[in-house]
Each structure stands twice: as structure tokens, then as C-alpha cells.
Design a protein around this nucleic acid. Sequence first.
RNA 1: GGAGAGGUGUCCGAGUGGCUUAAGGAGCACGCCUGGAAAGCGUGUGUACGUCAAAAGCGUACCGAGGGUUCGAAUCCCUCUCUCUCCGCCA
Length: 427
Amino acid sequence: MLTIKFIRENQDLLVERLQVRNLKAEEIIDMLTNLIALDDERRENQTQSDQILSENNKAAKLIGQLYKEGNRDEAETLKDQVAERKEKTNALQERQQTVKLEMEKILLNLPNIPHPSVPKGNTDEDNELFKPCATPLPILPDNAVPHWDLVQKYNLIDFELGVKITGAGFPLFRGKGARLERALINMFLDEAADAGFEEIVPPLLVNEASARGTGQLPDKEGQMYYMEKDDLYLIPTAEVPITNIYRDVILDEKDFPIKLTGYTPCFRREAGAHGKEVRGLNRVHQFDKVEIVQIEHPDKSYDTLMEMISHVEGLLQKLELPYRILRLCGGDLGFTSALTFDFEVYSAAQKRWLEVSSVSNFETFQSNRLKLRYRDDNKKMQLAHTLNGSALALARIVAALLENNQTGEGIKIPEALQKYTGFAVIN
RNA sequence: GGAGAGGUGUCCGAGUGGCUUAAGGAGCACGCCUGGAAAGCGUGUGUACGUCAAAAGCGUACCGAGGGUUCGAAUCCCUCUCUCUCCGCCA
């Protein structure tokens, strides 16, 4: 959420940059005009009602004094005046509530401002190739098969059992498949720890305030599983509970950077997604992911973003997977993000690129909702910057690993992973 | 799930309708003192919004959250929430 102060001071910028997200200039201008008119009214109301309240506060003290002196008549007169003024403030405050709600509604639906480097575009087709694949794409033998066949052949994942137990999109890992999953989680967590991230095991269900804090609400309400009875949401990513550690926190400049990591399962309803594109592990309702989160000084957040990119690259290199990095265009950029790089891994058997990581800088968009601030040199409050990235999302990594490493003798495990799996080949 | 007790500033803690501008203490910051430090002494010590070009200042709100009673609420009433104790259930 952008602050009203920032919006007032940067209207031209908003009109220009939000068009990158394919919003129409007239719509943005209309929205801003409406918002600022509401804010003007809010200020006016505040000034008026504060003044009346001040008068009433003084009167209340005086009344107490008059009673003590036995001057009842004068006290009664004052009381009448207070009552009269109170009616006025009540009306003002009621109106103020409405104005604030209207403003909030607009602000909550206003996406983040894309970074200057974000290209204009409508869909993922328009994403910019930031770093092409540095290695040749693997060429598989003619009898190579996609991972949904491989997992059956080697008894690694049982999708049918997942359906039986829960429903479609809830894969059941078993045997070496389960072991591979756990190995990847451990490797990613160890790598994150080596890079200075503190490991967190967070709750998997979050309350409304947390879901709102990182921006999943109201934008992605339909994407989350919701427990009505307890008013809790199943997390769609570890970003939510981990970033919310710092909701309503005031930091010192010397606390930066804060580096956290955590493994959690992620739950996504993926409503409406069906078909070939989503077969096997390509898109599931529950998947494992190791997330990295950083809270950083605004001056350093973009350097930090690049460091996180390097970290993710390192993981993919260790796994010997062919990858490329995309800079998301305005149309594909998430609601809360200012700049996002997506990592895609080439799945040789499906002959397509699979998104396995998304690394973003949210600048102050989340921290404003979270009220995550720090005191600067002049002891003034400033909003911190938040960043996060997948390092990595497992399901599609497993898919690519299985497909790309299939041979006549079985599936070869990359060397870096072997100490975690305890085996070098799946056959 | 049942019964009871609680939630006050960075922390501890007083405060049961107006002498509270939230006492007192600790911590922290600055100053004095000191050869230096400790002790001691003094001063300051939150957030949000409004006002102002800005700062200072001033005003308003905030004592778990939201309502209510009252001229006036940390204090009284209602709802919710969290913590603790006991009981129940339980890996």
C-alpha cells in the first residue's frame, strides 16, 4: 500500500508508472483526483473536530471546578453547550469514518509502482530476458518421458493416492521421491544458512492481519485456503508468516539487513487452473518451498535484490539445471512488487520453461501495511524495504531434475545433492 | 471445552470517575562532576493524525481491541481478543 503522503507528492509519477501495469491514464487520474479530494476532506474534518474536542475538554474541566465551587447554574449552561458541540463532532466523526474507509478501499486496490527498469507489457510473453541460459539445453533420447511418467515408473510420487486422500493437486511422495524432496529442502536450508539467513519454522496458518500485512488480502483472497471456523488462512508462501514477524516493529538502522529463511509447505487453491499445462507437478495445491526474506535499508535494497538473485543462481548451478532469468513486465508483475525477477528451469521432456523462483523487491509497499519502520539518522521514522524470493520452490525443481537427468540406467542425482539424498541414482 | 485471575509507556509498577499533564523505579540519551570510569546530581525520553513552506510549538487520539454510560473514563458497563492458574481433552 502506498502512503497518501507519497501519492499526493508524486501524482505525475504514478500516472506515468502505473501505465506500465496497463492501467489507463484517465482511470489513474480519475482515481487520484477522487483520492485526493477525499484526503482533503479528511484533513478538514480532522482540523474541525480536533478544535471542537479541544473546547469540550476545556469545558469539562471547568464544569468540574464549577461544581466544586457550588456554581451549579453556570455548570448547567456549559453542559448544554458541550452537548451541542458534541452533536457536531459526532456527525463529523461519523463522516470521517466513511471518508477513511473509502480512502482505504482505494489504497488497498492500488498496486505498487513499478521500478523504472520494469518494461511495459501485457502478459508473460512480454517479460524481458534478463539473463539467457548459459548452458546448452539438454537433449534427451527419443524415448524420454515427462516427469509424471517417471514418478510412476520409479514409484516416487503417487498422484492417485493424493486424490484418494485429499483431492487433485495434492501429490503424495514416497520412497526415494520423499527422500529426494527432503534432500532438496535440507540442501536449500543449508545453503541459506551459509549465506547468513536465520532459519525460521513459522506457523502454517495465519490470521487476517498477517495476510493483509504482506498484501495477500484483499488482492489474492480467492487463492488462499480459509478456515472459516477459526478465521485463519493456510499460508500460500512462507513469505507471509516470516515477513509478519516484523509487523508493527520499529527497527534501528544498525539492525539492517535482516535475513530470514524458512521451509514450509505452501497451499494454493489455484482456482480455475486445469489442463495439460498443469499436469503432474507443474501446478499443485500443496508444494514445498524454501523462502528467503530480507528487510533492508531503502538505500541498499536493490543491491540486496541482486545478491538474492546470485544466491538463487548458485542453487540452480549446484543442481546443474539449465536456467534463465526474466525481468517481469508490468502486466505480469505482482500487485505488491516494484521489481521481480523470475527464474525458469528448462524441462527437457516437456520442452518448456518452468518457473521455479520469483525474487522481488517490494520497497515500502508491504512495510507500509505492516507498519515496519526504522529510525533514520535524524531519529525520524521511515518505512523499511522488504524483499523475498523462492530459494527454491520444490515441485517444479523435482520435475526438471527427473526429466533432465533420465538415462537408460535410471535418474542421476546431481553431485551436490547426493550427500543429502544418500543415493546417486534412482532406478 | 469449563471455572477463575489478569493485560497500564522500552521494561517493572502505582493508579477504581475530575488534584493524572499516567505517580514511582529501572533502562536509554545528553549534560555536570571525575585524571578516566562507576556512583551521584540535573535534563530529556512513545506513536499516529491535524496545523505550519519546514522545524519548533500547539491541538487531537491512543492505558489489549471495538462499542457504550457521563459535562468528564486507564478507572463504570457490554462484546471480542490474548496471557496466566485450575479442571477436562491430548502428540
